[in-house]
Simulated assay, not measured.
Amino acid sequence: MFTILTMIRAYKKSDRPEVIDLLRRNIPKYFDPSEERDLEKYLDDQMEDYFVYVEGFEILGAGGINYFPEEKVARISWDIVEPNAQGKGIGRKLTQYRINQLGENQNIETIIVRTSQHTFKFYEKMGFQLEKVEKDFWAKGFHLYQMTMRNH
């Protein structure tokens, strides 16, 4: 009997095609096709901390953190989980990993997540509270659900 290695590690540029493919597999249920360009721009120019959940040699999830130190805020960003692996705790582990990382940062008072109507209940279970809703924010039929959590 052998054990499949699972870990959360820092994103590498070589992970880019696999992360883009994760997003594609979540279209149209969780993302609009137009968001692929946004993810590419994020990975190329806007990413600060980004992590991947790896099982064996396959990336099954990804998610990032962006920092706004002047506001003492961090934002959880671009969470994506392989559709066939959803419901198995990968999203929860990735989210908790980043919350734990932020818990060590005394300069961050608030954690924000901007999600859609499709996944806001997941973040609610993780302890985030709904702050505002904006219709058709991401794309037509994809509404913004902005949620916050106190850090520490």
Rank of each mutant, 00 (worst) to 15 (best):
F2H: 14
I4W: 12
T6P: 08
I8Y: 08
K12G: 00
K12F: 00
S14T: 03
S14E: 07
R16N: 09
R16C: 04
P17H: 02
P17F: 01
P17I: 01
P17S: 01
E18L: 04
V19E: 04
V19C: 01
V19S: 02
D21V: 00
D21K: 12
L22C: 01
L22Y: 02
L22K: 00
R24F: 00
N26K: 00
P28C: 08
Y30R: 03
D32C: 10
D32K: 01
E35T: 00
E35M: 03
E35N: 00
E36W: 01
E36T: 09
D38A: 15
L39R: 01
K41N: 15
Y42V: 11
L43T: 03
L43N: 04
L43D: 06
Q46C: 12
Q46F: 05
M47H: 02
D49N: 06
Y50L: 07
V52L: 10
Y53V: 10
G56M: 13
G56C: 13
G56T: 09
G56V: 07
F57R: 08
E58F: 11
E58Q: 13
G61Y: 07
A62W: 05
G63R: 08
I65Y: 01
N66C: 06
N66G: 05
F68L: 07
P69Y: 10
E71D: 12
K72F: 11
V73N: 14
A74F: 07
A74N: 03
I76R: 03
I76M: 15
I80H: 00
I80V: 14
I80E: 00
E82S: 14
E82P: 00
E82D: 14
E82G: 05
P83M: 03
A85G: 01
Q86L: 04
Q86V: 07
Q86W: 13
G87P: 07
K88A: 12
I90G: 05
R92M: 12
K93I: 11
T95A: 13
Q96N: 14
Y97L: 08
R98F: 03
R98Q: 09
I99R: 04
N100A: 11
L102K: 03
N105I: 15
Q106L: 11
I108Y: 08
E109S: 15
T110Y: 14
I111P: 09
I112C: 08
I112M: 12
I112L: 13
V113L: 05
R114I: 01
R114V: 02
T115F: 10
S116T: 15
T119Y: 07
T119M: 10
E124A: 08
K125L: 12
K125D: 10
M126F: 09
M126T: 10
G127A: 06
Q129S: 14
L130A: 05
L130Q: 11
E131A: 12
K132Y: 11
K132Q: 13
E134V: 14
K135T: 02
K135E: 08
A139E: 10
F142L: 04
F142Y: 15
H143G: 02
L144Q: 04
L144W: 00
Y145V: 01
Y145E: 03
Q146T: 14
R150Q: 12
H152G: 14
